[in-house]
Every structure is written in structure tokens, then in C-alpha cells.
């Protein structure tokens, strides 16, 4: 755990602290020169121990719902906080940004995460119509669609904060599908639709692999 390096640093620093105390002003002047000279010669102060800074930048690969596949760059300004932004792809290319907290620095650590994603307009609606079995005659009524979502997740990370970690997270999200309208002749009638919107409050999950360098 993170406390171990601090204990080691304390033990290493103990002799130099003792030496410093012996040279404190106010000690008897008559004994000082004779007593301190041999100590200083025998135990020179070790160089100050610097805690090695955790790596700040990483690269992550994520697979999830509604993320799709995401390749993201991670920045960790504090050891317990990470910001990431990445390129994503499901039915269309998109962007995902996230804020993540890992409050415990251990081999197994909990995760609290919030993220936002946006996918550009494109073939999303076509795929959804295929899956939903919408008759082809109605397809022109549904134009290109983009979607975005917010989600909150909790999970667990396994691995080293200073190297490779794998994380599994689950949570809830709100996804919005924004669809352009269209016009078509369907069964002898002229049908025109305005732009419309669909929303879903849904369960979300993701698995990610992160490497700090």
C-alpha cells in the first residue's frame, strides 16, 4: 500500500534527524566540539529521500455498453483521480470523456466513474431499424441519427497504479437518440416526420485495460 514507502522513508531519515538534533543550538558549549566532531565524520547525512512521482499519463482500451470500443488517453493529476478522453466507435465514430476516482491505492481498488459520450450522425438509425424490424418502406421517414449519453459507474480495478490495470465497471446511464425526420410515400399516403428523439434509462457496463507509462 501507499503507506509502506512512507515508513521506509521515515526509517532511512531517522539517523540524520538524530544528527541534526545533536547540533541544536543551546547545547552545552564545552562538550559540543569534542562530542560532535567524531559523529559527523562517522555518519554523513544521507541524501534526502524523494518519493517517486506516480506516472501521470496512460493509454486505455475499453469495451462497453454504450461506449462501444474506445481508445482513450488518460491523465492523472492526482494519484486518486483520472481524466480521460478517447475516440470511440460503435455504429458510428464518437468521443467519450470520463472522470474517475480510485480512492485506494492497492492491487485491488474500487472505482467511481462518470462519463459522457457522443456519437456523430450516421448509420445508427439504419441499424436500429434493421434490428427493430421496421419495414423498409418506412426507412426514409427516419433520417440520420446521433446519440449521446451520461453514465455513472462503480467497479473494481486490479493491477498496479504504476503500470497495468484491468477494470470492470457497471452502472446506470441515460442515453438520447436524436433522429432527423424524413418524407416518403408509404402505402399510397405521403408521410412526413419531424425530427424526433428517443431516450432510455439503461444499465451500463464496461471493461477496460489501462497502462500508465
Amino acid at each position: 500500500m501507499r503507506i509502506l514507502p512512507l515508513l521506509l522513508a521515515g526509517l532511512l531519515a531517522a539517523p540524520s534527524l538524530a544528527a541534526g538534533q545533536s547540533a541544536t543550538p543551546g547545547a552545552p558549549a564545552a562538550t559540543a566540539p569534542a562530542a560532535t566532531a567524531p559523529v559527523q565524520a562517522a555518519a554523513p547525512a544521507p541524501p534526502p529521500v524523494e518519493e517517486k512521482r506516480d506516472p501521470q499519463f496512460g493509454l486505455a482500451l475499453t469495451l462497453g455498453v454504450a461506449d462501444g470500443a474506445v481508445l482513450s488517453f488518460t491523465w492523472s493529476p492526482l494519484w486518486w483521480m483520472m481524466l480521460d478522453a478517447g475516440f470511440a466507435y460503435t455504429l458510428q465514430p464518437g468521443l467519450v470523456v470520463g472522470l474517475e476516482f480510485r480512492p485506494i491505492d492497492f492491487f485491488v481498488a474500487p472505482i467511481i466513474r462518470g462519463e459522457y459520450g457522443y456519437y456523430f450522425p450516421g448509420r445508427t438509425a439504419d441499424q436500429i431499424m434493421k434490428w427493430a424490424g421496421v419495414p423498409e418502406a418506412q426507412w426514409p421517414l427516419v433520417g440520420s441519427a446521433s446519440y449521446n449519453w451520461f453514465s455513472g459507474l462503480v467497479g473494481i480495478a486490479i493491477g498496479s497504479r504504476r503500470g497495468f490495470t484491468a477494470a470492470l465497471e457497471g452502472g446506470i446511464g441515460l442515453i438520447s437518440l436524436n433522429v432527423k425526420g424524413g418524407s416518403s410515400t408509404v402505402n399510397g399516403a405521403q408521410v412526413t416526420t419531424e425530427a424526433w428523439k428517443a431516450q432510455s434509462f439503461f444499465p451500463t457496463a464496461r471493461i477496460s485495460f489501462l497502462y500508465f507509462f
Binding site: 446506470i172 424526433w196 428517443a198
Partner: peptide
Amino acid sequence: GCNTFYAEAEQPQVCVTLA
């Protein structure tokens, strides 16, 4: 969860002109 999670769609206007 299945009763909590939902999906909704809203079509503000669809116009049909019949034959």
C-alpha cells in the same frame, strides 16, 4: 431494474396526406 429501466420515444409531428 427491468421495471426501473425504460425506453421512450417522442415524435413531435408526423403528417400524413392520404390519397
